[in-house]
């Protein structure tokens, strides 16, 4: 078997279910790449970019945290808290979210737990923004057009 049977699910939906040749995802210890034949693994994900590569296409997605599980027989499952394809991210909204989080962080008064929440929110929106900008020149498979405004 030379491919990974991959499923990316969030509580809301199944975001991606494909056979892949490789998968890179952001874990607590850094970006890891899973290739066919990987040994069984369970790892925690951090907000970041997920790169799924199949024989024909590449998928770039944003994940906001969760778990990756590699099983025997090249089965990989990601249980994500939230996930979006790069073309699904609304740049305008991501920008607003980032500004809001930055503002909240600046005016912050409260316990350390709340601070962590605000900081995570900022990190998430920053990553989102980064992903959507990075892939702006790519074509959106839904509309056939790039999201970059020229």
């Amino acid at each position: 078997m030379n491919f990974i049977t991959f499923q990316l699910v969030t509580p809301e939906r199944t975001v991606l279910s494909k056979e892949l040749s490789s998968l890179s995802c952001p874990t607590t210890l850094g970006q890891i790449t899973i290739l066919p034949g990987h040994e069984p693994l369970v790892a925690t994900l951090v907000p970041g970019e997920l790169h799924a590569k199949s024989a024909k296409e590449d998928f770039f997605l944003f994940v906001s945290g969760g778990f990756v599980q590699v099983n025997h027989g090249n089965k990989v499952v990601i249980l994500a808290d939230a996930a979006e394809h790069h073309y699904e991210i609304d740049e305008q909204r991501a920008k607003e979210a980032k500004e809001q989080a930055e503002k909240a962080l600046k005016e912050f008064k409260g316990g350390s737990e709340d601070y962590a929440k605000v900081a995570t929110a900022l990190e998430k929106s920053l990553t989102r923004l980064h992903i959507t900008r990075k892939h702006a020149h790519k074509k959106n498979p839904l509309t056939g057009q790039g999201t970059m405004n020229e």
Binding site: T27, T28, L29, P40, L41, V42, T44, F67, N71, H72
Partner: peptide, 21 residues
């Protein structure tokens, strides 16, 4: 296979992963 149940690799450690999971 029996091994598949016992030999999961945890990153960073089983405790940390389970704590979140």
């Amino acid at each position: 296979p029996e091994a598949s149940l016992e030999e999961y690799l945890f990153e960073p450690s089983p405790e940390t992963v389970l704590k979140h999971l």
